[in-house]
Nucleic acid binder design. Structure first.
Length: 283
DNA sequence: AAGAGGCACAACCGCAATAAC
DNA sequence: AGTTATTGCGGTTGTGCCTCT
């Protein structure tokens, strides 16, 4: 049983948005706020589907969007993030204020991708490590390697483009705490990291003598922040482990490499049971 | 000057994850 | 617990503009 389409296409406008449509959408969202995208066209009197409204707002009309050329610093950051994250544009965009995932994706596909050395095959693999069952219908040639390019061996550390989603970090007494809570060089996340480390240390020192898997501590954690803390610090354990990953993304001896929309999850050999049949993790 | 081709970017599509019922 | 609706994501396409010949 398939889903119903997000909207009936009959009678709806398509293509470029007019200034009037932009103004109507902007006015509506300023009054009522974001969300409930499907209701917006009807209530605002727009002949667009909700999906289209959402895209227009997020990619173009939002007031916090930065206009103008990508700066050299932004470009460097995009390259670094892409090297680690692959084509996870929303995650990359989340680290570049004022830039949208669509903008970064376009910039990569039209400009940056050419600058980056594809002969090292990093980016080819980064976008194609997973999701073999998707994006298979269209067959248009593209300027740059895409997820459909399976001809190259995988050699980089970039995570799978789509994987399971985590928003918690499992902290165990056996895990290498410094790997889970890597030192952060610029201090932006220092407080958070320190709190989490302290919480974990306190938990185990006060309550755990012979800790078993059933007594794990689950901490809410913005693992996106965790990820970035490692990206920015080549001296971090996180960074080192990233670069220990072998060609199959198997990870080093004591850690496995997972991915999600939020961040990777590190865990010790004691928690192999979390792994699924396909070497992915499950909740 | 005009046509061809390339480029850049906005918009669309299909899918997966999640929320709501 | 199962189904449906909604949201968000990444890949792809369409099109207008620019450059080259």
């Amino acid at each position: 049983m398939g889903r119903t389409p997000c909207c009936s296409k009959v009678g709806l406008n398509r293509g470029a948005w007019t200034a009037l449509e932009d103004q109507t959408l902007t006015d509506y969202i300023r009054t009522h706020g974001e969300g409930k995208w499907r209701k917006i066209p009807k209530e605002a009197g727009l002949k667009r589907c909700g999906k289209s409204c959402r895209l227009r707002w997020l990619n173009y009309l939002r007031p916090d969007i930065k206009r103008g050329n990508i700066t050299q610093e932004e470009e460097d950051l995009i390259i670094r993030l892409h090297k680690l994250l692959g084509n996870r544009w929303s995650l990359i965009a989340g680290r570049i204020p004022g830039r949208t995932d669509n903008e970064i994706k376009n910039y990569w596909n039209t400009t940056l991708g050419k600058k980056v050395n594809y002969t090292d095959q990093q980016t080819k693999q980064s976008s194609g490590a997973v999701n073999d069952n998707t994006k298979k219908k269209r067959n248009k040639s593209t300027k740059l390697p895409t997820s459909t390019d399976k001809t190259q061996p995988s050699t980089n550390i970039a995570v799978r483009t789509k994987a399971l989603r985590f928003n918690k970090v499992l902290v165990t007494p056996h895990a290498q705490q410094e790997a889970i809570f890597p030192h952060h060089a610029d201090g932006n996340h220092g407080d958070l990291v320190a709190k989490k480390k302290a919480a974990a240390a306190n938990y185990y020192s006060s309550e755990q003598e012979d800790t078993t898997a059933s007594e794990d501590l689950m901490l809410d954690f913005d693992v996106g922040e965790l990820l970035m803390s490692g990206i920015n610090n080549p001296d971090s354990e996180f960074w080192k482990i990233c670069h220990q990953l072998d060609d199959n993304n198997e990870g080093s001896k004591n850690y496995k490499w997972a991915s999600s929309h939020h961040a990777p999850l590190w865990f010790s050999e004691d928690y192999k049971d979390w792994m699924g049949d396909d070497d992915c993790f499950h909740h």
